[in-house]
Nucleic acid binder design. Structure first.
Length: 443
RNA sequence: GCCGUCUUAGCUCAGUCUGGUGGAGCACUCGGCUGUUAACCGAGCGGUCGCCGGUUCAAAUCCGGCAGACGGCGCCA
């Protein structure tokens, strides 16, 4: 009964965020705060409890005699991650981490936590096993904030430029990147597949709305064991009728630049904690340096890196190319034979396609991939047959070339890789809250 | 798909080379401490040494097989 009254009284109170206290806005005031125990230490008749909320961490001191004995005893025995509500006086104190502390006069444990599995010694693998709990860490919280801002900036930018957000299906009947890497599942008594890309739908959608985009998960059953691959990733895709390769490339560069500048401006604190310098991101301005595939091969050979014309650029080549760059690098006009069927041949050089890749500086991996699309239905059917696909499975897609086909272009941006790049993460697994990889689908 | 490494307490690891009663730190429990900084001091709790087989008087340790995980490359965003 007594406890219920306390809850009612507490819930009527105003709650102060830890951030406000650390900013010095509440010094010498009495405040109510609530959160989770981040660290706790006791020494006889004083307990130091570092409390965490969504905005930061703050030391609180609980002294016997300054509050009811039962509350002192509760404070002493509450384990890490217990949830608490407390009242106390804010004091500036250099002995406290962050420079401020609360001297507690009331202490209410909302829930006594069981021993928290994450302690000071842990491996990357273990943290993935308990990812649902590790999300509470300062590192993951900061990443989630930056990630949210990247998504927000992307939506705003594209909408401001007149693109319509159109949601694609996730259940599909055919892939776009070749059959080997697609997830198959039972769809009642039929086979279905998880979407690898919205592109085949997008090329129809633009015949209606002209400028379209989506942000949706894409699924790839690639057995990739690298720090840059997850099987479920968030894909930002843009498709536009009448647009040339050059127009799409320019849009992609502007989008990336806009994301960087927005995050640099609005997530300064998070970036700094994560080890990224916001000033570096502010300097990601358009245009980006640009080379053709042919030039890339020449540069690599000149640097003494063994590669032959016609071989796709791997991570080692891409890293070499962006060495000492402070902006992403654009590579265009890859050989036709290593490109997907829908990429348009360059009329002035049929050996290559009108495509572009954007490689992130420092990280050295592809984040954006785009092209002008092949508009000749016979060329597409020929390419589909060459890659072993049955054109009949792509009938709805081919309709986009049957009824008023127009030149058009588009690109895909790997948002998780953008998060990884901007937050300077060692692995893409930390860029997404619950990563799915070749061996992990839990939690 | 190719190559490499690893598997011992809830977590992080030593111990394996050179076979002989399974260890440390953290976490947790109990005790001590009125200013700690992932506090400290003392005690306690905690194990099918990944699994199966072999060698041996004796295997965490040596040999064979299997499984799982991690890392690098390829494929891709």
């Amino acid at each position: 009964m007594e406890q219920n009254c306390w809850v009612i009284v507490m819930s009527a109170k105003k709650w102060t965020k830890i951030e406000e206290i650390l900013d010095g806005k509440k010094t010498d005031e009495t405040v109510n705060i609530r959160g989770w125990i981040y660290r706790t230490r006791s020494s006889g008749n004083i307990v130091f409890i570092i409390l965490r909320d969504s905005t930061g961490i703050l030391q609180t001191t609980v002294k016997r005699g300054s509050l009811p004995d039962k509350e002192f005893d509760d404070a002493k025995k509450a384990l890490i991650e217990s949830s608490v509500e407390l009242t106390g006086s804010v004091k500036k104190d250099d002995r406290a981490p962050g420079g401020y502390e609360i001297q507690v006069s009331r202490f209410h444990v909302v829930h006594f936590a069981e021993p928290f599995p994450i302690t000071k010694d842990h491996s990357e693998e273990f943290l993935l096993d308990v990812r649902h709990l590790w999300l509470r860490s300062q590192k993951m919280t900061n990443i989630l904030r930056v990630r949210s801002k990247i998504f927000e900036a992307s939506h705003k930018f594209l909408r401001n430029h007149g693109y319509i957000e159109v949601q694609p299906p996730i259940f599909t009947t055919s892939g776009s990147e070749g059959g080997a890497t697609i997830f198959e599942l039972k769809y009642f008594d039929k086979k279905a597949y998880l979407s690898q890309s919205w592109q085949l739908y997008a090329e129809n959608i633009i015949m209606a709305v002209e400028k379209a985009y989506c942000i949706a998960p894409s699924f790839r059953a690639e057995k990739s064991r690298t720090p840059r691959h997850v099987t479920e990733f968030w894909h930002l895709e843009v498709e536009e009728a009448w647009a040339s390769m050059r127009e799409m490339l320019t849009l992609g560069e502007k989008l990336i630049s806009h994301i960087c500048k927005t995050v640099a401006k609005e997530c300064k604190r998070e970036l700094t904690v994560l080890g990224q310098d916001p000033k570096k991101l502010e300097k990601i301005t358009v245009p980006f340096p640009e080379i053709t595939y042919d030039q890339a091969i020449q540069i690599l050979q000149k640097k003494g890196h063994p590669i032959e014309y016609g071989k796709d650029l791997g991570i080692l080549e891409e890293r070499k190319l962006v060495e000492n760059h402070d902006k992403p690098l654009v590579v265009t006009h890859y050989p036709k034979e290593i490109m997907a069927f829908y990429k348009k041949k360059d009329p002035s050089n049929p050996r290559v396609t009108l495509n572009f890749n954007i490689i992130a500086n420092e990280m050295g991996d592809e984040i954006l991939d785009g092209s002008e699309r092949e508009s000749d239905i016979n060329e597409i059917i020929k390419s589909l047959k060459e890659q072993g696909s049955n054109p009949k499975d792509f009938s709805f897609y081919l309709d986009s070339r049957r009824y008023g086909s127009v030149p058009h272009s588009g690109f895909g941006l790997g948002l998780d890789r953008v998060v990884m790049w901007i937050c300077k993460l060692d692995t893409i697994k930390d860029a997404i809250p619950f990563p799915r990889t070749i061996n992990r689908i839990y939690p």
